[in-house]
Design a protein around this nucleic acid. Structure first.
Lengths: 126, 126
DNA sequence: CGGTATCCTAGCCGATACTG
DNA sequence: CAGTATCGGCTAGGATACCG
């Protein structure tokens, strides 16, 4: 992940392209709301409004914005049911479910080390 | 990770506290620079200036800021060698190395699905 | 209900300069 | 070399209002 240095020969041009794409994607997903949305979806299919309730604290705007981004990157699938009122459902795709594994590890980590962190903090803050 | 709902009995007070702490920590680490720094450190010990070269694109300010945060949360250890010029080294702690595993999974994911994502994007952008 | 657009503000973050 | 402080632009992101 850490960035490599490329020369300027033609063959290295698309290595550099792939690398910058990787960094771009990493920036996309290394964000609080994106990760929480992915975690909230899990194995379920959820409507927009269900997601908004599930991911506490997320605003309407941030939710749509991140969902668009996740859809664009092929991590979630969006299905619109043409009813009134409209019903829009979101599901993780296969890549999305793979990413979710990583998010799970992060969540587990957070809970596992809560104690460590709390004591580390009070030591630091003094 | 997804937030739970608590009542307002006393016993539930520290459940709520733990939950909010977990969310706070999650917000801390779900950020581009923090994750890239952790990944850059890996199993190595690096000086400040080495880190700045290693984590491409990071500014002086963001680097110090994130390093403080990571130190405060007990994820990295900071050792100052009292020489002139000063020499400051950073290493992952045990919790930090555990977190790194999660970051590794994310990095692997990014590279593994680069192709998927690229095609998903061009489909979406049309 | 879900999405888009518009405004408006807090704070992120880069640039710069200064200490030990 | 590493860290802190300050200034300023800019954008992330909340609130609100309005469409299909």
């Amino acid at each position: 992940m850490v960035t490599k240095q490329f020369g300027d020969s033609p063959e290295e041009a698309d290595l550099r392209r792939a690398d910058s794409l990787a960094r771009e994607i990493f920036s996309d997903i290394a964000n609080k709301w994106a990760l929480l949305i992915i975690e909230a979806l899990g194995e379920r299919t959820l409507r927009f409004s269900e997601l908004r309730d599930e991911v506490e604290g997320v605003s309407h705007k941030m939710l749509t914005q991140n969902l668009r981004m996740l859809e664009r990157n092929g991590m979630v699938e969006r299905t619109v049911h043409p009813t009134v009122p409209p019903r829009v459902e979101y599901t993780l795709t296969e890549p999305g479910r793979a990413l979710r594994k990583a998010v799970d590890v992060m969540c587990d980590w957070t809970h596992r080390y809560l104690g460590h962190i709390e004591t580390a903090r009070s030591r630091f803050d003094s």
